[in-house]
């Protein structure tokens, strides 16, 4: 490995500042897991197909297997470890919206961004967002219930 390809990458993750020495070709997912020990985001395909690696960048869900860590410079990255008592977490627990839990961090990050950005999301919008993630254990119905319950709470607290 030529040393020129490694460089110092300053990152802001979950509100904390980090500086890592990584390859410029390293993906954000790899750096989060292997350099920062944040293993919440999961590798499921490394091909943009499954959503297990979803994290937020400036509040937008992205698949961290398809972006370079170096692209995150100057952005604010949020991983599942950065969520504290988000309503969607409790909703996932209460609605049994996971079994093995492997798809869960990705699903939760995507769903969290959805309910925060679009509290009045309609059914087609929920679908459009959440079809980005694959779950093999649940029937998706449980996840739908969890997301809808949070949206309903948001609606109720607005009224």
């Amino acid at each position: 490995m030529s040393s020129s390809s490694k460089c110092e990458i300053p990152l802001t993750v979950n509100g904390e500042k980090y500086s890592v020495i990584a390859r410029q070709a390293d993906t954000l997912l790899f750096v989060l897991r292997n350099h920062l020990g944040l293993t919440g985001a999961k590798p499921g395909c490394l091909n943009g197909d499954c959503g297990a690696c979803t994290v937020l960048m400036d509040k937008t869900p992205i698949k961290s297997c398809m972006i370079l860590a170096i692209e995150a410079i100057g952005k604010s990255v949020t991983t599942i470890e950065g969520l504290r008592d988000a309503p969607i977490q409790r909703a996932f627990v209460e609605h049994f919206a996971f079994q093995c839990g492997y798809c869960t961090p990705g699903f939760i990050m995507n769903a969290h961004a959805l309910v925060e950005s679009t509290p009045n999301a309609s059914e087609p919008i929920i679908e459009k967002w959440l079809e980005s993630n694959v779950c093999r254990c649940t029937s998706y119905f449980e996840i739908e219930q969890a997301v809808k319950s949070v949206l309903a709470e948001k609606q109720a607290s607005k009224d």
């Binding site: 293993t39 991983t79 977490q89 839990g101 939760i108």
Partner: peptide, 10 residues
């Protein structure tokens, strides 16, 4: 709770 906070280890 481990599973919804990213603390569950595989």
């Amino acid at each position: 709770w481990d599973k919804v906070t990213g603390r569950a280890k595989y």
